[in-house]
Design a protein around this nucleic acid. Structure first.
Lengths: 331, 331
DNA sequence: AGTGTTTGCGGGATCGTTTTCATGAGGAGT
DNA sequence: ACTCCTCATGAAAACGATCCCGCAAACACT
C-alpha cells in the first residue's frame, strides 16, 4: 500500500540506511547519492512512516496541549498560533481539553501523553505533587502554575491592569468593581486590588463566581444598584454579560458606567459597544510555550521561567466618569 | 523507561502473546489468566505503546479533522464534541486548520493524513478530482461537499431558513436583505432566496463579501440607507457587524430593523441585543461525522450521505416590523 | 479406545524506521 | 610502499506490539 524506505532504496540503487540518512542527516551522504535518493523518493511519493519512526526513535514529533476548555474563545487562537509555530519546527500539536472537569484531567493527560514528546499544561488544576511526577516522566511546560524546577510560562496581567487603572483614572473614575469569576488562590483578584489601590481607585470585589456570561448579568444588576462607575470583569465573556444587562437596565455604557474585559477575544472586538479589554497576545503565548517545550524536550529548558505581558486595548466601552451625584440624584 | 508488554508477560508468568490478547481480545484468554495479566499490568502501570501498535496493526486510533479556521467560533464546539465522541469509541481527534488558504490545504492534509486512520474534510476547497484521489487512498468524510461515491455529511440550513422566513413573516416583515459572505457556488444564497420568495418576502442580496465582522458593518450602512426591515447575515460574526453598525447609526434593533445570524455561536448568545440565529447543533454534527468516518474506516460507510438539520433560535434581535413609512401607519 | 474438534497459550515473523557497527575505498603522512 | 584516518555506504539489530501458526490438553462422539 504505502511506499516504504525499502522501495526507495531499491529504486535509487542504494541501501535503506542510505535512504534513511538522506532524510535525517543529509550531510552524511554524498551529494550525488543524495540527489538520486531524493529523486527516487519524490517519484514514488515516499514519506517516512511516523509510527515506525517514533517506535524506533522514541520521539513522536508532536506536542500535547492540554487546556481547560477549547470552546472558551481565548484558546482557539492560541492553538492555531501554536500549530503554526510547531509546524515550522517540525512538530504537530495535539490539543485536548479537560472540559473544566478536574477529575478528567489526569485521564486526558494520560491519553495524550503517550502520543507526544512533551506537554503544555494550561492552568492545570492538578496538585503540585502530580505535576512534579508528570514533569519527571516527560518534558512539561506549565502555564500559570508554579512548581519548583519545572519549565513555566506565566501570563502576567499586571501591565494591562496598570494601564486599565491609569485609563480609568484619567477618565476621572474613582469607584470600581471587580467581578471575580474564579475560585481558588490563583485568581486575578489580588493583583488587581493592589494595582487599583495603588492608583487611588476604590475597588469592590464581587464574587467569586463562575467565569460565565450569566455571572456578568448578575454582577451588572448589583453594579447598577451601587455607585461604582467602572467595572473590570474576570474575562471578556463576563464583561459581555455585564454589558448585556446594563443595556437591559437602561444604564448607558460608557456614559454612566465603563466596562473592561480581559483576554481580548473575538467577543470584545465585535460587541456593541466594542469592549475595552486587556490583551494577551495569542501569538506570543503560543510561540513562547512551544519554544519552551521544545527546549525542554532537548533538555535545556527545565527550570526556565518565561513571562509574557499584556496591554490595554481601549475601545468604546470606557469613557469619562459621569458627574458626581453629590447633592443631586443620579442612579 | 516505559514498561513494555514483555515485562508484563514475565511478571504474570505468561507469554507476550497472551498479554497482547488480554488487551485486544480478552474473550480469547481464560478468565483466571486474564486477571493475572491485568493485575500485573496494573501494578507495573503498563499501557500499550501506540506507535508500536499502529506500526504493526496499521491503525493509529486517530481521526483527522481538517477545518478552514479553528478561530472561527463555529468550530471549537464541534471539535470538542467530536473529541468526546471519538474518545468514547477509542479514538483521538487530530485537528488542523488550513487557515482558509487553499494552497495550504493539500499540505496540511498530507501532514495529518499519515497520522490518522481517516479524514473529515470540512468544506474543503479542493477540486473534486483531488477529493476523489484522497478518498481512494484513505477513509474520508466530506462535509458540505459532494463527490459521487464518497461518504458525506451535509449541514442543511433549509429548516432553519424556513423558520426564519416564517418568523419574519409573522412579525410583518416584507423586505429583507441577505448579506452574502461567501464567494463561489457553494454559498447559502440560493436556497435562502428560494425559501424567502416562497414565503412572499422580497430579498435583496448584498455581496458576496468575506465572512467578516467588517462585512456586516459595511452591509449595515447600506441597509440603513434602504427600506428593508430585516437582515439575514451569512453567519453570526457578520450579523454582529450589522448589529454594531446599526447601533452606531442609531437604528434600533429590533424596533426598526430585525437581524438574524447563522450558526448560533457563542457570539449570538452574548450579544446585545442577543441575536436570533439559526442553530446547527455542534453535538449532532460532530457525532454524525465521527460515526460516519468510523463506519467508513470499517468499510461500511462509503457512499453514505447523512444530513443534519437546523432550526431557528429566536432571541432579542428580531421583532415586529416597524409601521410602514408610506401614508398611514400599520403594525 | 480412536478420531475429530475446540480451546488456551507460546513461538516467532513482521510492521518501517533508526542507528550501531563493520567494510572497503581513497588520501595523507612518513 | 606502509600505516593510519576519514568518509560513504551497507548489513543487521533493535524499537514494542500484533497475529498467524502450531502444539498440547480437554472434551465429544462414534
Amino acid at each position: 500500500m504505502a511506499v516504504t524506505i525499502r522501495q526507495v532504496a531499491s529504486a535509487a540503487g542504494v541501501s535503506v540506511s542510505t535512504v534513511s540518512r538522506a532524510f535525517t542527516a543529509p550531510d552524511q551522504v554524498q551529494p550525488q547519492t543524495l540527489q538520486r535518493v531524493r529523486e527516487a523518493a519524490a517519484e514514488l511519493g515516499y514519506s517516512p512512516n511516523p509510527a515506525a519512526r517514533s517506535l524506533r526513535g522514541g520521539r513522536t514529533g508532536s506536542l500535547g496541549l492540554i487546556i481547560p476548555d477549547i470552546a472558551n474563545p481565548f484558546f482557539p487562537p492560541i492553538f492555531k498560533a501554536m500549530q503554526a509555530r510547531a509546524r515550522r519546527l517540525g512538530y504537530t500539536v495535539l490539543a485536548a481539553d479537560t472540559d473544566e472537569r478536574e477529575y478528567d484531567e489526569l485521564e486526558t493527560i494520560a491519553a495524550v501523553s503517550k502520543q507526544v514528546d512533551g506537554l503544555i499544561l494550561w492552568a492545570s488544576t492538578l496538585p503540585e505533587e502530580r505535576l512534579r511526577e508528570l514533569g519527571a516522566e516527560m518534558p512539561t511546560v506549565l502555564v500559570n502554575r508554579h512548581v519548583e524546577g519545572m519549565a513555566e510560562l506565566h501570563v502576567s496581567l499586571s501591565a494591562g491592569i496598570a494601564q486599565a487603572a491609569e485609563h480609568l483614572k484619567a477618565y476621572g473614575h474613582t469607584r470600581c468593581v471587580f467581578v471575580n469569576g474564579e475560585h481558588g488562590e490563583h485568581g486575578r483578584g489580588k493583583s488587581i486590588r493592589q494595582v487599583f489601590e495603588a492608583h487611588d481607585l476604590s475597588l469592590t470585589e464581587l464574587g467569586p463566581y463562575e467565569p460565565r456570561f450569566e455571572t456578568g448579568v448578575h454582577a451588572a444588576t448589583l453594579v447598577a444598584a451601587g455607585d461604582a462607575t467602572a467595572v473590570l470583569a474576570h474575562n471578556d465573556l463576563v464583561a459581555l454579560g455585564v454589558l448585556h444587562q446594563l443595556a437591559k437596565l437602561g444604564v448607558g455604557v460608557p456614559d454612566q458606567v465603563s466596562v473592561i474585559g480581559i483576554d481580548d477575544t473575538l467577543l470584545a472586538a465585535t460587541s456593541t459597544p466594542s469592549l475595552t479589554t486587556i490583551r494577551i497576545s495569542a501569538d506570543e503565548v503560543a510561540t513562547r510555550a512551544a519554544d519552551l517545550l521544545i527546549d525542554t524536550i532537548a533538555g535545556k529548558g527545565e527550570g526556565r521561567i518565561a513571562e509574557i505581558g499584556s496591554r490595554l486595548i481601549p475601545r468604546a466601552s470606557t469613557g469619562p466618569a459621569p458627574a458626581e451625584p453629590g447633592g443631586s440624584a443620579a442612579g
